[in-house]
Simulated scan of single mutants.
Amino acid sequence: MLRRLCALVVGGVLSGFTFLLLSGQYINDGPVLLTVSQHHGLHLGDLFVLAGWLVAMLALLTLAVLPSRTR
């Protein structure tokens, strides 16, 4: 059950990232927190994307570390 939940989380987060990458826009970019160049920077909305990435990576780690139960 936990493996399926983790896989669902990973699939949802990665699907959301795909949408963001394809559209090139966020629903709410928010203010710029860190300027990288004249046309690029880290927005408040990027923190949401980074948090989602972290959740997905933790779910994948859980899938990789937990021993599988064979019936």
Rank of each mutant, 00 (worst) to 15 (best):
M1D: 04
M1Y: 06
R4W: 08
R4D: 05
L5M: 10
C6E: 06
C6I: 04
A7V: 14
A7D: 01
L8C: 01
V9W: 09
V10I: 13
V10P: 07
V10E: 07
G12F: 06
G12C: 08
G12P: 10
V13Q: 12
V13G: 04
V13K: 03
L14R: 09
L14Q: 12
S15D: 08
G16M: 05
G16H: 01
F17H: 11
T18V: 13
T18E: 09
F19L: 10
F19K: 09
L21G: 15
L21W: 08
L21M: 11
L22P: 08
S23E: 03
S23N: 03
S23F: 02
G24I: 06
Q25K: 11
Y26I: 15
I27G: 05
N28C: 05
G30Q: 00
G30C: 05
G30M: 02
G30D: 14
G30K: 02
P31I: 12
V32R: 14
L33V: 05
L34E: 08
T35N: 15
T35Q: 14
V36A: 11
S37W: 02
S37K: 05
S37R: 01
Q38F: 04
Q38H: 11
Q38M: 06
H39M: 11
H40Q: 12
G41C: 10
G41Q: 14
L42C: 04
H43K: 15
H43D: 06
L44S: 00
G45P: 06
G45N: 04
D46T: 08
D46E: 03
D46G: 13
L47W: 01
F48G: 00
V49P: 11
V49W: 04
V49Q: 03
L50Q: 10
A51V: 14
G52E: 02
G52F: 01
G52C: 01
G52I: 07
W53V: 14
W53L: 13
L54Q: 10
L54Y: 04
L54D: 02
V55C: 12
A56K: 07
M57S: 11
M57Q: 14
L58E: 08
L58G: 01
A59Q: 06
A59H: 08
L60H: 07
L60R: 10
L60D: 03
L60S: 13
L61K: 07
L61Y: 12
L61F: 08
T62F: 05
L63C: 09
L63P: 12
A64W: 00
A64S: 03
V65A: 01
L66R: 00
L66M: 05
P67F: 02
P67H: 05
S68N: 13
S68R: 12
R69F: 06
T70L: 10
T70R: 09
R71W: 02
R71I: 14
